[in-house]
Design a protein around this nucleic acid. Structure first.
Lengths: 384, 384
DNA sequence: CTGAAAGCGCTTACAG
DNA sequence: CTGAAAGCGCTTACAG
């Protein structure tokens, strides 16, 4: 397409008719085409050849200046930089990565960015990964297997240098497992939170069984009554680990285990679910000494329900969550939680992913320990 | 590098010595080199030529099958697909984008993914953008100008099809403004939340002045006492808008304006800041009828402080936030908030970004209206 | 220290 | 419906 004002070629229509793009194996029909693309400020973008011509050097020299590689005279370097700035040149990341045969980006995929612990983890990992000279790209799985599979496909297409996957959702559904197995063929992977049998990747995990067991032991010392456990064993690996720990602690006192209730949630693990499950037990709530929740959102909802039912936290029933998000000290009553240190996670993950990039496979590090933080909702003190 | 087991060439060392990568204008020294890269499962990755050879067709046909473009016999298509699956081929996104001269990804940059409203917005935008046949890429600005500038640079290098930027932080610092002006030269941009003069992009915003004014008017009807306003005018555009609305409502009653305090926070707008500012006013708290916060996190921290000081929310002082995040109905007392609909935002943003991609510039749509949600912290009822 | 030239893996007119 | 060939914008041996 010719352009009146200049002798350059206009870029092709960005949104051609009937074009289909592939996401995973499905193809999404493209929306109806719009008119041909008008031009923004500039037409054909400037490239290394334009810089080279204008600076009177070769493209090789421009590239060397761009990448700080090879030796270039300080004078040449300064001159090329000046031309780059003057022409407003931005390197094309695709061309560079294609030629180099690698991508310096590492993916960080988390179960949900609406969970504050995952956000903390993302930021900690980003910092640690950048310190190694890599960039990062964030993936929000929205607790969806379909989205995970899609992102795994995207990671392969983008030839990511590595991938970190943090989720408590089960990864053993056949199609999910297949997607991960395929991913790990070409992209080094570190999974945070769960170990699958014969997995071709490194796993970093907390010892949730022990943490839950200890937490319940401490709570039973405070009040020797049955426990109401809220988790989602069906699709959640972490719920299962935590349930096992709770059961283990309760087995020390058979009559307590007898009276306890280990709920399997099926419709989410958010504020509403915690609220709903406790409200549904209005009649039997007084038999429990503790509501033990697999995350802090459930715990907050549970507290609200206890309050609405006319009971007191912690005088009538104690409540504890998992994750220790920033908000907990500020709610009334302040919420107790089982805490996991993101810094410790990042310290294990980064060497493992770097090893993967170097073609080595690092063995799984020892499980990380969690810490129980008692606040008002379990009678307080202890620490913090 | 030769490889004993196969006759293919090993990929180059992924992490060469002394290599530097560029982020913005700085170059990060790469960590010390490790040993040469060992191979994962496969060596040279399979490409279209391998598929073409194995299938007995041309690379053009393989490409057509891959993209669903052009006409291909159903038999050929099926055969090529079989070969692709058998050889485990994944297209190289760099090569495709380089050749096509475009990227079908749209960036979504938000001030902070630790704020639930932004997470809701990301998900709503992702859904709407995908429906248009584009993929998305999430950027977390961490409330940092430096990170924003970095991401703008990244967006240009990646030749993103478009960019959506949602932040209440001021964008008028010279280097930030320069980065955005440069970005918009090549990448269509839509900014959510604030209008800058002579901006080359479309803005979608709420009418925060009016919303704040109305909210304070309603609260003054409930209790005609001065207001404690918590915001961060220095670096926050949204704080300023909201402060103006609050002042406007207070001007109706000069003695109330007189007694009110409009605080300019300087160290963040999180739970801790809300808590700290109210605690610092232990002596004077009883003079205020309302604590008006520019976000929900501040409001939660403020509630806690009121509680610790021995006052009651809402009987002694009312508290209201901004954003209406999911948790608010579940805290005690449940928190009132000024709500903004992410769906309405996405409905304005997507056509604007599509227009930008088509080379058109859409005028700013009318400001969106917010809704005041009264819960227990302002005396409840009203709605919800 | 610098340049000429090949090539990364795709897609797309163009020709048949 | 299919193929041969050019070329997207870089980087990198290689030669000087």
């Amino acid at each position: 397409m010719a352009c009146g004002g200049c002798n350059r070629t206009a870029p092709r229509d960005q949104r051609a008719a009937g074009l289909a793009i592939h996401v995973g194996d499905r193809s999404l029909a493209r929306a109806a085409p719009r008119g041909p693309r008008l031009h923004l400020k500039s037409m054909k973008q400037v490239g290394v050849v334009d810089i080279a011509r204008e600076a009177g050097v070769s493209t090789a020299t421009v590239s060397r200046v761009l990448n700080g590689s090879g030796a270039v005279t300080e004078a040449t370097r300064a001159h090329v930089r000046e031309v780059i700035a003057r022409l407003g040149y931005t390197p094309n990341a695709f061309a560079a990565s294609l030629r180099k045969g690698r991508n310096d980006a590492i993916g960080i995929a988390v179960a949900s960015i609406s969970q504050p612990w995952h956000v903390k983890l993302i930021r900690e990992l980003r910092r640690a990964i950048r310190a190694q000279g890599f960039t990062t790209i964030v993936y929000d799985l929205e607790h969806s297997e379909e989205v995970l599979i899609e992102h795994a496909e995207s990671a392969r297409r983008l030839r990511l240098a590595g991938m970190v996957l943090a989720t408590g959702d089960r990864l053993d559904a056949p199609d999910v497992r297949a997607a991960l197995d395929q991913l790990v063929e070409t992209v080094p992977l570190v999974v945070i939170g769960q170990q699958l049998p014969d997995a071709g990747w490194t796993t970093v995990a907390f010892d949730d069984v022990t943490a839950s067991e200890h937490a319940v032991q401490e709570l039973l010392e405070r009040r020797a009554k049955p426990v109401l456990f809220l988790g989602e064993a069906a699709s959640s690996y972490l719920s299962e680990e935590r349930r096992i720990g709770v059961e283990r602690a309760l087995r020390a006192a058979p009559e307590l285990l007898e009276g306890s209730e280990l709920v399997t949630l099926t419709a989410g693990m958010d504020y509403a679910a915690g609220y709903r499950e406790v409200m549904a037990r209005a009649a039997s709530l007084s038999q429990f000494g503790t509501v033990f929740c697999v995350n802090d959102e459930l715990a907050l909802g549970a507290c609200r329900a206890v309050h609405e039912l006319g009971f007191s936290v912690p005088n009538d029933v104690m409540v504890i969550g998992y994750g220790d998000v920033d908000m907990l000290p500020y709610v009334v009553p302040s919420l107790s939680s089982v805490s996991g240190d993101v810094h410790a996670v990042a310290e294990r993950v980064v060497p493992a992913i770097m090893a993967g990039i170097d073609g080595r496979r690092m063995p799984n590090p020892a499980k990380l320990q969690r810490r129980i933080v008692h606040r008002e909702s379990t009678g307080g003190s202890g620490e913090q």
